[in-house]
């Protein structure tokens, strides 16, 4: 199909979706996930999370002009992160300075179909925390840090280390439009994906302004035997310790029976 025909078809489709009255237009968007629960089993090698949805009540002129952009962000459970820097003291490399950052996502993955910088003005992206470089890093002030200027090398190292482990990523090729209003994002979830409650958010931009956002929840949890062990170790840690000792005693006893030398 040649390009003019394609454009005409898009126009017709868009026109059909147009509401009777165009006076008060309010775009909205649906969001769906391929799975709202990702189980981590002993052979978990990572998976792909698929996020899809449709744009609704779109303005056909803006649609034709390519004025709409969709950005999908997957954020893992937040936690405090301490970044430490090693220094050489008496010939030995020692952790010396440290900074604590509060409510840092343990996982951050973004999907668009253009460069992040082309979605919206820098300030808009910064305010929404879109892009690995815009993940807000708030220093938690502790007594010894109160008067310390936040050294950007600490927050940059946090981003760099997490990005190297595929825990933070901007995927600029990961989102595609299957029709003018139907998008699909494919986000890789590595085997090291932290467990916990995730939030998947789709942002709709029109001409560089964020006009609608919609979120869905997802959970990554250990499954089966791993889940049982992990839960026991954290929630009934005394019992877990006693069981570990009994297991060891049994193994030692069995070994001494099997390999008895006298």
């Amino acid at each position: 199909m040649s390009r003019p025909w394609q454009l005409l078809l898009i126009f017709v489709l868009a026109a059909m979706m147009m509401p009777a009255s165009t006076a008060a237009r309010a775009e909205s968007m649906q969001i769906g996930l391929s799975a709202d629960e990702v189980p981590i089993t002993s052979d978990f090698q990572g998976t792909n999370l698929i996020v899809f949805g449709t744009l609704e009540e779109t303005d056909p002129t803006a649609l034709l002009a390519g004025g709409y952009r969709v950005v999908v962000v997957v954020r893992g459970p937040s936690e405090d992160v301490v970044v430490r820097k090693k220094e050489r003291i008496l010939g030995v490399w020692v952790n010396s300075q440290s900074r604590r950052f509060g409510s840092i996502p343990s996982f951050y993955s973004l999907a668009t179909n253009v460069e992040v910088a082309n979605v919206a003005p820098a300030q808009v992206l910064k305010d929404l925390g879109l892009g690995v470089d815009n993940i807000p890093m708030n220093l938690v002030s502790r007594a010894q840090h109160t008067f310390v200027v936040p050294a950007p090398e600490f927050s940059q190292s946090l981003r760099r280390i997490r990005a190297n482990k595929a825990l933070y990523a901007d995927n600029t090729q990961a989102l595609e439009f299957l029709s003018p209003t139907f998008y699909r994002a494919t986000l890789p979830l590595p085997s090291s994906a932290p467990v916990g409650q995730y939030e998947v958010t789709a942002y709709l931009f029109k001409n560089g302004q964020m006009i609608y956002e919609r979120s869905a929840a997802m959970v990554v949890r250990k499954a089966g035997f791993e889940r049982w062990i992990f839960t026991l170790a954290h929630e009934r840690s005394f019992l877990y310790g006693v069981m570990a000792v009994i297991l060891a005693i049994m193994t030692g006893w069995l070994a001494s029976i099997i390999f008895r030398r006298d």
Binding site: E79, V81, V83, R84, K86, E87, W93, R100, S157, I161
Partner: peptide, 13 residues
């Protein structure tokens, strides 16, 4: 004593 590959390390709270 050997210089580490990365001077920075992370630990979660």
């Amino acid at each position: 004593v050997v210089a580490p590959e990365d001077l920075f390390s992370l630990s979660t709270s």
